[in-house]
């Protein structure tokens, strides 16, 4: 595991922001760390970077702890936390040169990074005059400058336009696929993570609600039978009386828990026999977006 935490807990005063968090981030993965705003994602990332002192539990990055290997760990990590930390009075290029100087990276790498995030044309412009998207791209370039094995990115696509989001996504996928990097990326948007992540951790109120490969998340989604009739409300009542589990009723359709193909056929027959016109009936899987909402809506324990 590249990142491994065990019962990580962190309090701000009386408020527990991270509760017994046990992260498992495998090498070579894109780990999507999901949760609504205020769920504890940024606090977790700051703990993983040793910016916040661990109060309870332990953290291992590349199998090492911060107490004895802080510099070894941080020399292999590139990070972008919240809004990019950029010196506004310096140009984009100077920001990168300054970081290259601190990390002892050759200056040639600065131009590579500028080209990678498509900022070569604005390299001589003061960073304070950059748009939010340009700042975000510069932040990513700063994180990638030392060619780290692990990238920790906190909401890196904030402020980017759709093209920018696609470019960053493709870049991250390429880094993992072609260069064997590991990416730990936080977001509150599942749709964004879904398109690139190999693993997912869902956090809310500081607690891990789900963790595992993204396909496992899909598999825990309960399949349903979606039925469209001429009178959905009455049809739902009939099905409930007949012992079927109706999940929800909308104007356009009703959803019943899927049991089997045979059971679906019986529902169809039952509705026909009782005079309801069935316009459509088919099995559906709850999409990840709804699943994410269901998981994160669960009240805090």
């Amino acid at each position: 595991m590249v990142i491994e935490t065990n019962n990580l807990t962190f309090n701000f005063g009386n408020q527990t922001v991270v509760k017994s968090l046990s992260l498992q981030v495998p090498a070579g993965s894109i780990y999507g760390f999901l949760g609504p705003n205020g769920a504890g994602k940024t606090t977790t990332i700051k703990l993983l970077l040793n910016l916040l002192q661990t109060q309870q539990g332990d953290i291992k990055i590349f199998g090492m702890d911060f107490a004895h290997n802080r510099r070894d760990i941080l020399s292999q990590v590139g990070s972008l936390i919240e809004q990019p930390a950029i010196y506004g009075h310096l140009t984009g290029r100077e920001n990168l040169i300054n970081r290259a100087l601190l990390l002892q990276v050759p200056e040639g790498r600065v131009d590579e990074m500028l080209a990678l995030v498509k900022l070569t044309h604005a390299a001589a412009k003061k960073a304070s005059n950059y748009s939010l998207g340009m700042k975000q791209r510069l932040g990513i370039a700063l994180a990638l400058l030392s060619d780290p094995k692990l990238l920790m990115l906190d909401e890196p696509t904030n402020g980017l336009d759709p093209n920018g989001i696609i470019e960053i996504r493709e870049l991250l996928v390429r880094l993992v696929r072609d260069h064997g990097k590991t990416v730990f990326i936080s977001s509150h948007l599942l749709a964004e993570i879904e398109k690139m992540a190999t693993h997912v951790g869902i956090i809310n109120f500081g607690e891990m609600l789900f963790q595992g490969p993204i396909k496992d998340l899909q598999s825990i989604s309960q399949p349903m039978v979606q039925i469209e009739t001429d009178n959905n409300v009455d049809a739902a009542n009939l099905l409930t009386r007949s012992g079927y589990k109706v999940i929800d009723v909308k104007d356009e359709c009703l959803n019943v828990a899927f049991e089997s193909k045979q059971s679906t056929a019986k529902i169809n027959t039952l509705l026909n026999q009782n005079g309801y016109e069935v316009y459509s009936i088919h099995k559906v899987q709850k999409d990840l977006e709804n699943l994410f909402l269901d998981i994160t809506k669960a009240p805090a324990k």
Binding site: N50, L51, R71, L74, S79, I81, L102, L103
Partner: peptide, 8 residues
């Protein structure tokens, strides 16, 4: 946050 997450 950047300064204190550098390997320095």
């Amino acid at each position: 946050k950047t300064l204190f997450s550098l390997p320095i």
